[in-house]
């Protein structure tokens, strides 16, 4: 069964598929502009600092933990 979890909980080096973004409208738009759409695959490179390093749509971003908590993902494919 796929597990739905916040992006911050994803282990480093894994991929997840965005399920929902539980953020306010403004923040949500920012994230959508960056490519955090539903069903987009996000790769988490680093999550052991104050911010996450993620790959989405071929771009790499540093993303604050608070914001990453609002992005719900499933570990995809399985």
């Amino acid at each position: 069964m796929p597990q739905v979890l916040p992006l911050t909980m994803m282990p480093e080096g894994t991929e997840g598929k965005v399920v929902s973004i539980n953020a306010g409208r403004c923040l949500k738009r920012r994230l959508v502009e960056m490519g955090f759409l539903e069903n987009t695959v996000v790769t988490v490179h680093r999550s052991d600092r104050g911010a996450l390093m993620v790959n989405v749509n071929g771009s790499k971003y540093a993303l604050g933990k608070g914001m990453a908590m609002k992005i719900m993902v499933t570990d995809c494919y399985n």
Binding site: L27, R30, M34, G50, A51, M53, S59, K60, Y61, A62, L63, G64, G66, M67
Partner: peptide, 9 residues
Amino acid sequence: APFIMELPP
């Protein structure tokens, strides 16, 4: 504010 920043190659 929340931290978002693109990390270019």
